[in-house]
């Protein structure tokens, strides 16, 4: 028996009480859970659950470059491998890296490079492996967020963390953090990332219909959301050590 699933999206993306289909307000994020240091054999690792997204990131490096001709004599290179599991989306995804995966790997590389000191490690590579186990909209933003966390966990010197979120427009209203359905059926989608050491935009993509005058509103909304996620990133990094500290210092860090 063939499974018939209609490729249709709901006409209205808002419920009658004015909330979104998953019960969120316009500026509300999906629930986020972050953890660091979960893979033993990686130099640094992190895990993220962002709504229905489930993503692993592992960092290795600095190490030799393979194939060797990619190595640069004056600086190190950062390589990101973004991969989606075959079971991560509704219809089975072919395991070979496609056009979309190569593009997302490239934009995450470009997004993370400004915070690293690659010139200090000539002839080496840092490698970030991102595995998407479950995808439901906004995986490129979630991957950037979790990759920055894994790099920090590996002890690689960084100027700051990087945080990313998507803003969009659905049914004429501007919303933060689009889910899978909203992404496909909505009007516009604008993922953006920020590097905190100079508060510059490190990633900005756009897809859909939007008035250019609205861009400022989009970015302002994004920044509020980014700050919220940044706090979560800091907590995730610190909590691993603070729990041990609290156990032996009687609940307080020694001043």
């Amino acid at each position: 028996m063939t499974l018939l699933i209609k490729d249709e999206y709901p006409e209205k993306l808002f419920r009658e009480d004015g909330k979104r289909l998953d019960g969120r307000d316009l500026k509300e994020l999906r629930p986020i859970k972050l953890e660091v240091g979960i893979l033993n054999n990686a130099d640094g690792s992190a895990y993220l659950e962002w709504g229905n997204n489930k993503i692993f990131a592992a960092v290795y490096g600095p190490r030799e470059v393979h194939p060797h001709h990619l190595a640069k004599p004056d600086k190190g290179i950062l390589r990101v491998f973004y991969r989606m599991a075959t079971f991560s989306v509704f219809e089975r995804k072919r395991p070979a890296p496609g056009r979309r995966e190569k593009e997302i790997s490239m934009i995450i590389t470009d997004c993370l490079e400004p915070v690293l000191f690659l010139e200090l490690y000539p002839g080496t590579s840092f490698e970030v492996f991102i595995d998407v186990l479950d995808a439901d909209g906004g995986t490129r933003c979630a991957s950037t967020t979790v990759a920055a966390l894994a790099l920090a966990d590996a002890g690689i010197p960084m100027k700051s963390l990087v945080t990313s979120v998507a803003v969009g427009k659905i049914d004429g209203k501007i919303v933060v953090d689009l889910s899978g359905v909203e992404d496909k059926a909505g009007e516009a989608d604008l993922p953006c990332a920020i590097t905190w050491f100079n508060e510059e935009i490190s990633l900005l993509q756009f897809d859909g219909d939007m008035d250019l005058n609205e861009l400022d509103t989009f970015l302002k909304l994004a920044k509020d959301a980014l700050k919220e996620i940044y706090e979560m990133q800091l907590n995730a990094l610190k909590s691993k050590y603070i729990t041990i500290q609290e156990k032996y210092n009687g609940g307080q860090v020694k001043q």
């Binding site: 960084m158 700051s160 500290q245 860090v253």
Partner: peptide, 10 residues
């Protein structure tokens, strides 16, 4: 000395 936990960018 002070032993505060800090993270990159702090």
């Amino acid at each position: 000395f002070t032993r505060d936990l800090v993270v990159p960018g702090e």
